[in-house]
């Protein structure tokens, strides 16, 4: 028979306080084994304090063609960035 184990994406929190970050993929029969495999494969050098795994097929991704509509609008909203505001240097703690 042999159907291939599903592919999982692995996310690791490198240090306390940081977000989880995508580090790579692996195969496992289910999510629980994927978590163990992730520990063995992706934390061999003390890389993490917390691991998430998610089956790759469950991820919904934007398609590259949407890049314009999805991200371009935010480019014009420069007022969301702190440097937009001109505050005199002598105003402290800003």
């Amino acid at each position: 028979m042999s159907s291939e184990w599903p592919l999982f994406e692995v996310f690791i929190r490198g240090q306390h306080g940081l977000s989880h970050r995508h580090v790579g993929s692996l195969h496992a029969p289910d999510a629980e084994m994927a978590l163990k495999n992730a520990r063995d494969v992706y934390t061999r050098r003390n890389e993490g304090v917390s691991i998430w795994v998610v089956e790759s097929a469950r991820i919904t991704a934007s398609s590259p063609g949407d890049k314009g509509p999805l991200y371009a609008p935010s480019e014009s909203k420069i007022y969301r960035h702190p440097t937009f505001y001109d505050i005199p240097d002598d105003v402290e703690a800003m």
Partner: peptide
Amino acid sequence: PVIEEDIALAN
């Protein structure tokens, strides 16, 4: 039998 197990056994 599979790379993931190879790595786990080595650990």
